[in-house]
Design a binder for these strands. Sequence first.
DNA 1: TTGACAATTGAATACATATTCATATATAAT
DNA 2: ATTATATATGAATATGTATTCAATTGTCAA
Lengths: 120, 120
Amino acid sequence: MAKNEFVCDCNVIHQNVVDNTSKSMLDADTFNKLAEFFKILGDITRVKILFALDQNEMCVCDIANVLKMSKSSISHQLGTLRRSGIVKCRKSGKEVFYMLDDNHIKEVFEIGLEHIEHKK
Amino acid sequence: MAKNEFVCDCNVIHQNVVDNTSKSMLDADTFNKLAEFFKILGDITRVKILFALDQNEMCVCDIANVLKMSKSSISHQLGTLRRSGIVKCRKSGKEVFYMLDDNHIKEVFEIGLEHIEHKK
DNA sequence: TTGACAATTGAATACATATTCATATATAAT
DNA sequence: ATTATATATGAATATGTATTCAATTGTCAA
């Protein structure tokens, strides 16, 4: 069903709540970017990489060692993180050092950890 | 390759960086839960639902109207959110009202929005 | 008790994506 | 130049998941 043809299949709705909430919703693009941001954080390998990079800048091989995973897999994930603007890198000879490029990562991790703690 | 059989295929690694970072890494369970938390937030439908519920508690039908999506789809997502402890609900007759059950959602959204703003 | 309806749930489908494998690129050393 | 190596990348596979559709549950009203 196309979005703009949507007709509610309920008889009882709280129209004023629906209207007020609808007005305060953000635009589709913002919701998309928000979901994309969290989707990037929603993978255990990327979470580990970001947590590690929060400690030190590291080359691909270092990260592969810390995570005990293949360099190829790490490199793919670093590409994803780089394209989404969460990490950046600098080259030094054959090595490429990665580091965080977003100062919100630490904060967002802390809140995530609070959530986990709270749910225990 | 099993994790505990992992042998690095690099010649040059920064052993002390790897060692120090490895020591400061969290346990696997915590990383898993952290990734799970963000994974839940990493879907545009769930982001919209949570943003809406941050304004008002709402029944399934209300949410379906605000998002212009089917009740079934919304109900499935609410189930996911409920099972992960992010929303809770109360029944009132035939209706079920959902509300946030995690006071970190608002904070984490704000940081996400800052990230988006910063990357423009 | 029967009908209507809000919500849930299971199965199926369609789509996204993480890792692996093979290969390519770039840089340093010989 | 040639070799070794750190990283990147494309394709394939396997796995996960969002939505739809159909059916079911639970509650209210007649």
